[in-house]
Amino acid sequence: MGSDLFVLDDIQAGYGRAAPVLRGFSVNVPRGSIVCLVGPNGAGKSTVLKVAAGLLKPRSGRILIDGREATGFGPQRMLAEGVALVLQGHSVFREMTVEENVRLGAYTVKDKAKIAERIAFVKEVFPVVADRWGALAGLLSGGQQKQVEFARSLMVDPAVVLLDEPSMGLDPKATGAVFEQVVRMRDAGTAVLLVEQNARRALETADIGCVLDLGRVHISGPASELLADPQLGELYLGGRPHV
């Protein structure tokens, strides 16, 4: 599969007996890249991540991880294969310390040396995690809590991290800080598949953009080119940017 690390190919998926939400959806996530999915409400963005994380079995299509078949794997198997999910909203345990939250990400890891190595790694990638290591997670700001969630997801050394609306509920300053940390994850060697309602900010961060509509990719390409397309801006990105 060349540089493609994570592939969803011609996926059809939905809920119960209802019509499919994804109707021939395909995306390739290359190594060392941030791929963002944007589009209107109801386009199927969150359903993509549920399929990718093994939470929803596709009706048809294929999932490949580094060229290996992963179609139909459940969430634990997907995590073991290197696919980690960071949920929408805040999922830290507020009455636990930052350290305790982060260590939970390594609950499947038995090698203490490996755990220590990953702790050192996430502290380097996310300085706020190191700075607030002994603090209660509930005392951190929303943007800082999101960084704790990112650090927790990296404890298993995943190949790709799935991010569902990481800026939800954050003010503009915190949103900027969170997207800076998404770039740090990418630069540290983890590919990212990102779903984000803040389409412009996501495309400014991403390497590749995909616009979803009616359950399939309407257009994809370098994120910078999608941002520069005035017609695309009017249709999907909330009009022209303010200058």
Results as ranks from 00 to 15, higher is better:
3 S>M: 12
3 S>R: 05
5 L>R: 00
7 V>E: 15
13 A>P: 09
13 A>N: 05
19 A>F: 08
21 V>W: 04
26 S>P: 09
36 C>A: 14
37 L>Q: 03
41 N>C: 06
43 A>P: 08
49 L>M: 11
51 V>C: 01
54 G>S: 13
55 L>M: 15
56 L>D: 01
57 K>W: 09
59 R>I: 01
59 R>D: 13
62 R>M: 03
70 A>G: 05
73 F>K: 08
75 P>C: 07
81 E>H: 08
83 V>Q: 08
89 G>W: 08
93 F>W: 08
94 R>F: 05
95 E>R: 12
95 E>N: 14
96 M>E: 09
97 T>L: 10
97 T>N: 05
102 V>T: 03
107 Y>V: 07
108 T>M: 14
112 K>M: 06
112 K>C: 01
113 A>E: 15
117 E>H: 14
120 A>C: 01
123 K>G: 05
127 P>M: 12
127 P>G: 08
129 V>S: 01
133 W>L: 07
135 A>Q: 15
139 L>K: 10
145 Q>S: 02
147 Q>K: 12
150 F>I: 09
153 S>H: 07
153 S>D: 03
159 A>R: 13
159 A>C: 00
160 V>F: 11
161 V>C: 07
172 P>K: 00
177 A>G: 08
178 V>C: 07
186 R>M: 14
187 D>N: 13
190 T>P: 01
193 L>K: 00
193 L>R: 00
193 L>N: 04
197 Q>A: 12
197 Q>E: 13
200 R>G: 08
207 D>A: 01
207 D>E: 04
210 C>N: 06
211 V>P: 06
217 V>N: 04
218 H>V: 06
228 A>P: 00
229 D>I: 04
230 P>W: 10
239 G>V: 09
